[in-house]
Structure formats: C-alpha cells, structure tokens
Design a protein around this nucleic acid. Structure first.
Lengths: 241, 241
DNA sequence: CGTTGCTGCGCACACTGTACGCAAAAGGAA
DNA sequence: TTCCTTTTGCGTACAGTGTGCGCAGCAACG
C-alpha cells in the first residue's frame, strides 16, 4: 500500500518521512503479529504479510527482530503476559490460587490457539519476562502453602504440564474446527461417520460416543476441570501427611 | 541421484522400470519421513527432500499422500504405534499399567522430539488406528479398575494431557540442546549467565538454580515421575471413596 | 493386438525467510 | 550553520517451499 501511494507521486516529490519516533518498534511488531495470528492462524504469519500490515517492507522488520524464530519467542511471551495469578497471600488458599492460574492459562490458550503449534518448538520460553513473572508468583503461592522449595517447583511443573497438554489438545481441535468454517457442533456432527468407522473395532470407545445432545464446549470445560482437580488432589495429599 | 544416472544415458536407452511392485508405497513414505525427522528434525522434512531420499521425484509422493498435512497425520500415528500398554487383566493393577503406559508415551516423545511441534497442529490425531488402539487399551484398564465409563475417559485424558504437556516441554528443550550441538550438561552450563540475568528480580527462582552438579537427565526423569504420581494419586482418591 | 487405468515425474507458479547494500533521516559535534 | 556518525527503512536477489497440471511409460485386461 505504501508502494501504491508512491507510484502516484513523481520522482521529485519524494516521500518525506516525518517521524517523531521510529515508525517500527519491536512492541508494535509483536502486537501486530499476535493480531494476525489470532485472526488468520499460524500459516498466515509471514514476514512479508506482517510487514505490509505495518505499512512497512518485509525486510524492515529485521532491524528490530533478529529473525522469525526470535519473533515467535517474543510473541509467545507476549501472550503469556495476559495471564493473571493471585498473590500468595490470597485468603482463598493455594489450591484456589493454583486453579485460577490454571484456568487463566487455559483461557489464554483458547484465545490464541495457534500457540499450541509453537510451544513445542520454542525451547527457552521460560526465560521470557512474562513467563518468569508468572512462575515466580506461582512459586510463591506453593511455597507459602507449605511445599519445600524443590517440591514446589515440581508441583508447578506438574500443573503447568497438565494445563499445556490439555490446552494443546483443545487448541488443535479448535483449529481444525475453525478451518472447517463450521461451528464446533456442526463439525462434530459431520465428523460422526468417520468416528463410527474408526471405533468399529473398539467397543469401549464406541460406547463413549453415545451422547450427541451435549454442548461440546461445556464438555471440554468439565473435562479440563476434572483433570485439574485430580492433579490438585494429588498435590494436596503431599501437604497433609 | 536418479537424475544423474539418467543424464549419462541417452534418450534412446530409456530407464526401464522393472518393478515387481510399486516403487513407492504409503508405508515406505511414512517410514522414510520418520527417519528424516529423527535424524535432522522437523525443518529438514520437505517433500523434495523426502522424495530424493526415496529415489523419487518430489511430486511422486502425491500419488500416495494427499498433501503434506496428511503426511504429518500419518507420521504422528506411526510413532504412536511404538507405544505399548499392558492388558487390563495385568496382575500389577491399573495404577502400574497406567504408569507404564505413561512412561512409554514419554519415551516415544523423547525418541522423536519433533512430534512436540506437530501435536499442536494435528487436529484429528486420535482417529489414527494406532492412537485408537492405545486409547482402547487404556480405557479397558481404567474400566476394569472400577472407573465408570465416562469418568474413565476423563481419567485417561487427564493422564495423557499431563504426559503430553511435560513431554512437549522436554522435547522443546532437547531440540534446542540438539541444535546447539552440545551436550545437555554443556548447554545448561553455557546458558547459566542468561538464567542468572533472568532471575535477577525473582528470588524464588534464583534460589532454585543452585544445584549445578546434578545430572539434568536424571532431574527430568524425577520431575516427570513426580507429576505422574500426583496425577495417579488424585485419580486413586476417586476409587476408594 | 488395442485400451484402460495406474504410477512416476518434469515443469511452473506463487510464495517463503533472509543476506546484502544503498539511501534517507536523526542526532551530535564543531 | 556544516560535517560526521549511527540508526532506520527498503529494493533486490537467492535458494528453497508446497503443489496443480499434464505427459509418458507400464501392467493388466479384453
């Protein structure tokens, strides 16, 4: 689009860059990247696409970001910044705090399902400032709850692993649903024949797909809560011993 | 390479395809794809690369595989086929069976760390025959353990989510370690300054990074086992009520 | 013998990440 | 002001990607 504007002008009236501050900043780039990812998914994010969305050339981005991988790292930490955890002196107790944090992480993943396909390739995500802040808060919660330091760390990893695992599964599902252009319910219905075929020789699973009137979103909520409660139950037994 | 051979020959001596059976089969393609992924990681797998590895042109693969996404689905199910679960009449009990299954899944992920970056983008992985078989076995284990049908399904999802979440995290770590060309220990050591810097304002986490003599692989083993045991503890409380 | 259907492949197209080097601007110094 | 240095944006280019299309050779069948 910037190219088109200039095409109208002549060589003598040069495009004057009247900038009080740099046209591009890392924060702007990351924010726009998240917007594209949310709107069109992970396949739509290319450097050229991101550049034009910012009225900039593709390669201009490389002044503020080393390469695509680094951009991904930044984007992942950015969305981690949306997560809120109660303080460790929250009167509701460690269990409630952990549950709220877990639900908050899940909500973030469902808001940005594309993150599921990035978490497996970003190696050092936990060094990002927002992830550090989140882990520090959680660590405080578990330590004041009575877990010894090293076990508190393991406890957090356990809860986080569960949340990310379930979130990954949900996000992958939601992504394919979105790609189908249909609602979650319609898509489930349309998938039924394939499911029936796949469960032909698996009686236990065949039995499981009976309920067809249930709200799929509600089912996912309950499934997530079930596993979370079990994990917290398991952790609780370590305290009252 | 096939191209080079033919360059020597003239137009008259045509390359005779003496095939008793089709040169390419879906199984062969998938197997070779897994081999490439294991050896060189997810970035190295392109249709062209896979084609030449099979002494075939890139587009020949499309006779046996609809597109790259379908290949990925097949590859994911393929490695799921490596997982073994004890039968539901295993005398060791449901808990031991679940633990063995979980460890088996983890081992598979660590053997094929690239799967971590694919799980978040494969939507219908659970329809693959190998995944179906695995889930059916697990379901049988939990049902005979005494879980009602719908809760058994939730229980399996919970354990699986934990395993996949922790496995994803481990795999992402191992992938970056491998990309550094160093050993896990060397890489950890080299990362230390960055970790110190990142934990500067986070006292709890700063305290956690004291131990530098520990075997990182052993630490990962213990961390995984801890969370797994907590999840199983949490599930066990649902049985003896 | 001819016909039909299956398999492999060369070509082409639109697209990717990014290295390189130039030009314009901004900021500081004289 | 003028000159110099550093920062920022971008055009070009290159090697590589997934894959649609249509042709050519082969196998099996009539």
């Amino acid at each position: 689009m910037a190219t088109e504007e200039r095409a109208i002008q002549s060589v003598w009236t040069r495009p004057r860059r009247t900038r009080d501050q740099p046209a591009l900043s890392q924060a702007q780039i990351v924010a726009e990247a998240v917007r594209i990812l949310d709107a069109e998914g992970v396949d739509a994010l290319s450097m050229r696409r991101l550049g034009t969305a910012l009225n900039a050339g593709a390669t201009s981005l490389y002044r503020h970001v080393a390469n695509r991988d680094e951009l991904i790292e930044l984007v992942v930490d950015e969305v981690y910044g949306e997560i809120a955890v109660p303080d460790d002196d929250d009167p509701a107790g460690w269990r409630e705090a952990a549950a709220v944090g877990a639900q908050s992480v899940r909500a973030m993943i469902l808001r940005h399902p594309w993150i599921a396909s990035l978490l497996g390739s970003v190696g050092l995500s936990y060094l990002g400032p927002n992830v550090m802040r989140l882990n520090e808060r959680l660590l405080a919660v578990f330590v004041t709850a009575g877990f010894p330091g090293d076990e508190a760390e393991q406890a957090i990893s356990s809860v986080t692993a569960y949340v990310i695992g379930m979130g990954t599964s949900e996000a992958a599902w939601l992504t394919t649903v979105a790609k189908s252009g249909r609602s979650e319910r319609e898509w489930t219905e349309q998938l039924r024949p394939a499911v029936v075929e796949a469960t032909r020789e698996h009686p236990h699973q065949r039995e499981r797909i009976a309920q067809d009137d249930a709200d799929p979103e509600r089912l996912r909520d309950e499934k997530f809560r079930y596993g979370l409660e079990r994990m917290l139950d398991g952790l609780e037994t370590r305290l009252k011993r």
